[in-house]
Write a protein that binds this DNA or RNA. Sequence first.
DNA 1: CTGTATCCTACTAGATACTG
DNA 2: CAGTATCTAGTAGGATACAG
Lengths: 120, 120
Amino acid sequence: MGKGKGPYLCGLDAAVDVVGGKWKPLILWALYAGRTLRFGELRRHVPGVSEKMLIQQLREMEADGIVHREVYREVPPKVEYSLTELGETLNKALEPLGLWGDKHMERLVARQAEKIEQSA
Amino acid sequence: MGKGKGPYLCGLDAAVDVVGGKWKPLILWALYAGRTLRFGELRRHVPGVSEKMLIQQLREMEADGIVHREVYREVPPKVEYSLTELGETLNKALEPLGLWGDKHMERLVARQAEKIEQSA
DNA sequence: CTGTATCCTACTAGATACTG
DNA sequence: CAGTATCTAGTAGGATACAG
């Protein structure tokens, strides 16, 4: 996401461009409610993500102003990630969507199983 | 989206898998609030979309149970698309996100401009 | 009018190895 | 610990032509 697709046509369009993709929802979820995590911790909270993808997504979210990156000049290095105020407002706006997903999870999982089956 | 990425880890993860991608937000927006549109009308409401992509996304959304497809056996053919009840609940859950996008549109557009510049 | 079929490209994302 | 670099595979998405 965030690939530059021409002017946004509505707020939803713009917002999905910011939160969409395979990893960003999980990152937002991991940093939920003021939580602060180090790079390694965050990685463990997002199962299956590679270092490269995690960095890439974090950098995009940082540039979008929703993630804050705090570097401690120590040895060994320590970097902490958290949501900015804007990020918190985004997470608030995502709450109903998350609840919707929880509520209809079964149906969505079933549909997903079909798709995997088809591609096999 | 909807590519089969293993089990969902949270509701937000599942929901974004359903609404994510380049076109689905615009389709949901076009069918907002009980609106019913024919294929050609819908296409005009989603600028730049190809026939192939529009069909593909609609089929996925139909399979996910959020879009209803009504075929009229006439000549020339006529097909109408609308949201199901589940689709309407999804749109309701997306409302805060759409508002968030509207509110911060300027910032997001600016960030988007940077990205396009970089890739040039 | 509403789709299908085919081919093609660009980008997303994974694996692996390496660095301050 | 927290990244970076490179190489590669898979997939989203686009162009075009055709069909019921």
